[in-house]
Design a protein around this nucleic acid. Structure first.
Lengths: 131, 131
DNA sequence: CTGAATCCTGTAGGATACTG
DNA sequence: CAGTATCCTACAGGATTCAG
């Protein structure tokens, strides 16, 4: 895979994945893919996220130009977050990845179960040896 | 994006991304994409990884059925790691993501720079107000 | 060479309280 | 409502050491 891309750029991909892998980022993007959302809407729909993490995640995405933040100077304040064009275009590779997960989900579960089973056996073998 | 997939599966994608986003996983997969590698080869080629993390990463990938571990019972021991079919198929979405990153890399850098610049200004404004 | 085990540290991130 | 600030903890992960 690295034949086409030099290692520097592989690092970039890894870095980008690290950004996405922070557990919340993708979920937030997915929610915004359905249309603009207010802060509290996101807080409600992205189940389990803390106020702090939502703020940080949104800031980070805004910094990367993936979401746009629009403040309506009303009272009480209303802030809307929306995907930018860049953010929308990002949906495509995410979908690709999602598709792969969906396709191979069962196989992965199977592999895990088998691995764990073997591991179980090994452990009990160890215990037998120890006993 | 979540129109097509129910939320449960979105969680799965997020979870999978979290797995991939642990900084080392993708790099290891990328190295293995060029062919089977021994433990110490990987340790050398995946620059910066600790012995511990390489072990853990490989175990995890093995558990998911993405890499296969082959022990040659020689002295000194020789252990080879290779991508399974599942692991190879994973290259495709990764490439898609990689492609996106490469395509939009400059734009992201630009967005970041601008965001930081604005942030700079805000900070100095605050300082002025404070002063 | 390929690990497993132990120790130790930084930090991610939750809970909470406060502001405009 | 939409944050910011502070505190606190659990855990990720590096360095090191031991073992087969």
């Amino acid at each position: 895979m690295c034949d086409n891309y030099d290692m520097t750029k592989c690092q970039t991909v890894s870095e980008m994945l690290a950004r996405l892998g922070d557990k919340w980022t993708v979920l937030v993007i997915m929610m915004l893919a359905d249309g603009p959302q207010r802060f509290s809407d996101l807080k409600r729909s992205v189940v389990g996220i803390s106020q702090r993490m939502l703020t940080l995640t949104l800031r980070s995405l805004e910094r990367d130009g993936i979401v746009a933040r629009t403040v309506h100077p009303t009272v009480p304040p209303k802030v809307e977050y929306a995907l930018t064009d860049l953010g929308c275009s990002f949906g495509e590779p995410i979908r690709a990845l999602g598709g792969w997960v969906f396709t191979h989900h069962d196989r992965i579960q199977l592999a895990r179960a088998e691995f764990d089973r073997r591991n179980e056996v090994d452990t009990s073998n160890k215990l037998i040896k120890l006993g």
